[in-house]
Simulated scan of single mutants.
Amino acid sequence: MLDSSLAQEIAAIDGVELDSEVTFADLTTLRIGGKPRSAVRCQTTEALVSAIKLLDDASLPLLIVGGGSNLVVADGDLDVIAVIIETDDVSINLTDGLLTADAGAVWDDVVHLSVDAGLGGIECLSGIPGSAGATPVQNVGAYGTEVSDVLTRVQLLDRTTHQVSWVDASELELSYRYSNLKFTNRAVVLAIELQLLTDGLSAPLRFGELGRRLAISEAEAHPRRPVRMVRDAVLELRRAKGMVVEHTDHDTWSAGSFFTNPIVDPSLADAVFEKVGEPTMPRFPAGDGKEKLSAAWLIERAGFKKGHPGAGAKASLSTKHTLALTNRGDARASDLVALAKEIRDGVLETFGVTLVPEPVWIGISIDD
Rank of each mutant, 00 (worst) to 15 (best):
A7H: 12
Q8S: 15
Q8L: 12
E9Q: 15
A11P: 00
A12I: 03
I13L: 14
I13A: 08
D14V: 12
G15W: 11
E17N: 05
D19L: 02
F24M: 02
T28E: 14
L30V: 04
K35Q: 13
K35W: 02
P36L: 05
P36C: 10
R37S: 12
R37Q: 13
S38F: 04
A39N: 05
V40R: 09
R41L: 14
T44L: 09
A47M: 08
A47I: 03
L48C: 07
S50K: 12
S50L: 12
S50P: 02
S50H: 12
A51N: 11
I52V: 14
K53L: 13
D57R: 09
A58V: 09
L60E: 03
P61H: 08
P61G: 02
L62P: 02
G67W: 10
S69Q: 12
V72A: 05
V73I: 14
A74S: 08
D79A: 05
A82S: 05
V83L: 10
E86Y: 02
T87E: 07
D88K: 14
S91Q: 12
S91C: 04
L99S: 06
A101R: 08
V106D: 14
D109Y: 12
V110T: 09
H112K: 11
S114K: 00
V115P: 01
A117I: 06
G118N: 04
G118V: 09
G121P: 10
I122L: 11
E123T: 00
L125S: 04
I128S: 06
